[in-house]
């Protein structure tokens, strides 16, 4: 199993860098991981709005929410979502939020 080291801690991840032990997630993890997902500088309030939304939905339903629903509930469009997370909502945003990698025909 691959590992990554972030801010002095070691995490188990899959081959594409998704956190394997979901309870190891912390805000420091997200902050330290941001640059890997092509985000410059510190995470902003808007990043956290998306990350917290994803985490809440995941805790409730066990999957990542539909992109349409993220955009509607947070009142942002796809363009903005990609500006915030250049590697995309399914990759970058889910990774930073500590969700498992989306699977199936999505």
């Amino acid at each position: 199993m691959p590992q990554i080291e972030l801010a002095g801690k070691t995490y188990e991840v899959d081959e594409d860098g998704f956190l394997q032990e979901l309870d190891k997630w912390s805000e420091e993890f997200a902050e330290a991981y941001a640059h890997v997902e092509e985000i410059d500088g510190k995470l902003t309030e808007e990043h956290w709005m998306v990350i917290n939304y994803l985490r809440n939905y995941y805790q409730q339903f066990g999957i990542a929410p539909m992109i349409r629903k993220i955009c509607k509930d947070l009142k942002i469009d796809m363009k903005k979502l990609y500006e915030l997370f250049p590697t995309g909502p399914a990759k970058g945003a889910c990774k930073l939020a500590g969700l498992s990698k989306p699977t199936g025909c999505v």
């Binding site: 339903f61 066990g62 999957i63 699977t103 199936g104 025909c105 999505v106």
Partner: peptide
């Protein structure tokens, strides 16, 4: 993460019946 997950939780996407209702 495909057929095994589908049989276990209902869908290869991990979508459970409550998630379906929400969607």
């Amino acid at each position: 993460k495909g057929s095994v997950q589908q049989i276990k939780v209902g869908s290869s996407t991990g979508m459970t019946p409550p998630a379906l209702a929400d969607i």
